[in-house]
């Protein structure tokens, strides 16, 4: 179950002078109910990968399978796929358009052909899941604060009841408070709703403490696909990809290099503090 990519390549503007290869022979398994961080520098192919996952792009070669079925085969229901694989783009608040928050969130379910009552039910659930209170339901989405707008937009995708939810740079442009709120919200959603969440980011600090698996993209290829702790062991190689490990990894490595015998795989400041205390006793 889930999505699998088999040797997927993608070339932009094929056959022209501007031909650029965005993705090369990527194999990837995305099972149900996993929390995945997809990390890559701008131009690493991560945004292309994401659009391949829900059929917005068609691979130049290779296959994308959903529950074992080729999503580009004849007769495959793409609309159902897009409901199952929800994609929240960067700056999703830029897609809000309806007169009030509730109607905007109902847009997705309506497109699925559900009746009015069912749409409303789903929209209300989705809004509850992103922490938007009922008093805002009839407000214009454009009158919400920045962070609220983004949450309302996420609800718009959540209302499609996806099995897999992909969020492309959900914290882009937010201040520290907004960032912490959104990341907190996403990990809450992961706990409460049984679905796979893919968090796309170029910041290891954002994803390190939340996800159970990290996929690192670089130059159109999959470079690492492992647990956060294992991926961050390669912190020097990550730098060559224009990425960096979480700040805490650097701190622990500096301590170790200066002769302190600490484990370097702490993911949070709390873990690091505990490790240092253990070694100092």
């Amino acid at each position: 179950m889930g999505i699998s990519l088999e040797k997927v390549s993608y070339v932009y503007e094929q056959g022209t002078a501007m031909q650029t290869s965005a993705l090369q022979e990527v194999d990837l398994e995305i099972p149900d109910n996993q929390f995945i961080g997809l990390i890559g520098h701008t131009g690493s192919g991560k945004s292309t990968l994401v659009q391949l996952l829900n059929g917005l792009l068609r691979p130049t070669s290779g296959r994308v399978l959903y529950n074992g079925k080729d999503i580009h085969a004849d007769g495959f229901d793409k609309k159902a796929l897009r409901a199952n694989v929800g994609l929240v783009f960067q700056y999703p608040e830029h897609q809000l358009f309806e007169v009030d928050v509730l109607s905007d969130v109902m847009y997705g379910p309506r497109n699925l052909g559900l009746d009015e009552a069912a749409c409303k039910k789903r929209a209300k659930e989705a809004l509850a899941n992103v922490g938007i209170k009922e008093k805002y339901f009839k407000t214009s989405p454009f009158d919400l604060s920045g962070g609220q707008k983004r949450r309302a937009a996420i609800a718009g995708v959540l209302a499609m009841n996806p099995r897999i939810l992909i969020l492309d740079e959900p914290t882009a442009g937010l201040d520290p408070r907004g960032r912490d709120e959104i990341l907190g919200l996403i990990s809450e959603m992961k706990k409460n709703l049984s679905m796979t969440i893919i968090l796309v980011s170029h910041s290891m600090d954002d994803v390190a403490r939340y996800v159970e698996r990290i996929v690192v993209m670089g130059h159109g290829r999959k470079i690492y696909d492992d647990t956060p702790k294992n991926v961050f062991r390669h912190y020097r190689e990550l730098e060559n990809l224009g990425l960096s490990a979480p700040q805490i990894t650097y701190i622990m490595n500096t301590l170790r290099e200066s002769g302190m015998d600490v484990e370097t795989d702490a993911l949070t400041v709390e873990e690091a503090a505990a490790e240092i205390m253990r070694k100092l006793k």
Binding site: L56, K79, L87, F89, Q95, Y107, G108, G156, M160
Partner: peptide, 26 residues
């Protein structure tokens, strides 16, 4: 924006003219 709305199930390829115009609002 088009891609984002397609991800929310929008249909920009409808043959029906009224539907097509309606689909442009989002």
């Amino acid at each position: 924006i088009m891609k984002a709305q397609i991800a929310r199930g929008a249909d920009f390829e409808s043959k029906n003219l009224i539907k097509k115009i309606k689909s442009l609002v989002p």
